[in-house]
């Protein structure tokens, strides 16, 4: 069987150090997958391989919607289909909020200005910051900036959305507003792969939870199972450390 996102024998080295030790993973269309695990377990590296922000070993393969994620034309097609939200937002500081959202549709999809603008305003309203459209990102709070980043990713109408610890850089009081936006996205048909430390969010929203440690996937399953009744001792240790601190 082959999923909408298909990861086969994914291996990656930093020099001699093997960060990802042969990961196989099939993700269905519309599925919401949360990836958890200790820092250094390779979970960020895993999702950064899906749009090839990280290079990976030649004997590995990743396919998105049947397209091989290999350099060249096919990579451009994959990146137009796969949106990404970063821990540190990475908004474009020289562009207004609205221009941040409009840039990729204008350049990559050749959307006419008026249509791109209307779409940007619609998306900004959807993430609850329509009134900030003309401001520059630096004037917004962290939570607002991350919601702009989500709107910017949505502007390309992606089939897949990758979230790389989207709330880890936020002040605690702003985590909720970002998770609310993500919760609203789940179930809209977009496939979501989320690296997160928010166990409550994962248990509510995820169809499947993946626990990674030491560059391997140790446990995969519905949240009740992985978070509620973990089989692996290392999963149990990780969860008790995270939940009891």
């Amino acid at each position: 069987m082959s999923g909408f996102v298909s990861i086969r024998n994914l291996r990656k080295f930093y020099g001699d150090f093997e960060v990802l030790k042969g990961i196989d993973l099939e993700i269905e269309k519309g599925e919401v997958v949360c990836v958890i695990g200790p820092s250094g377990s390779g979970k960020s590296t895993l999702i950064r391989c899906i749009n090839r922000l990280e290079e990976f070993s030649d004997d590995s393969a990743i396919l998105v919607d049947g397209i091989h994620v290999t350099p060249g034309r096919s990579l451009a097609r994959v990146r137009a289909e796969v949106g990404m939200v970063f821990q540190s937002f990475n908004l474009f500081p020289h562009l207004t909020v609205r221009e941040n959202v409009m840039l990729a549709p204008r350049r990559v999809r050749r959307t006419p200005r008026a249509a791109a603008r209307a779409q940007a305003d619609r998306l900004l309203a959807r993430v609850g910051i329509a009134e900030q459209a003309d401001k520059y990102p630096e004037l917004l709070s962290g939570g607002q900036q991350q919601r702009v980043a989500i709107a910017r990713a949505l502007a390309m109408e992606p089939q897949v959305l990758l979230f790389d610890e989207p709330t880890s850089a936020l002040d605690p009081e702003m985590v909720g507003e970002v998770l609310d936006v993500m919760r609203a996205l789940a179930g809209t048909g977009v496939t979501m792969v989320i690296v997160t430390h928010e166990m409550g969010f994962a248990s509510q929203v995820a169809d499947r939870v993946i626990f990674m440690d030491g560059g391997r996937v140790l446990e995969v399953g519905p949240p009740d199972q992985v978070l509620g009744a973990p089989q692996e001792p290392r999963t149990r240790n990780f969860l008790s450390a995270v939940l009891n601190h």
């Binding site: 922000l53 990475n90 908004l91 474009f92 990559v108 990713a153």
Partner: peptide, 24 residues
């Protein structure tokens, strides 16, 4: 992160330079 965000959005290297990197 500016290069990565541009790449993730599907901008080409040239578009990234002209629209994102050089203006900054």
């Amino acid at each position: 992160g500016q290069f990565e965000a541009s790449a993730a959005l599907g901008l080409t290297a040239r578009q990234t330079m002209i629209d994102v990197i050089l203006p900054q």
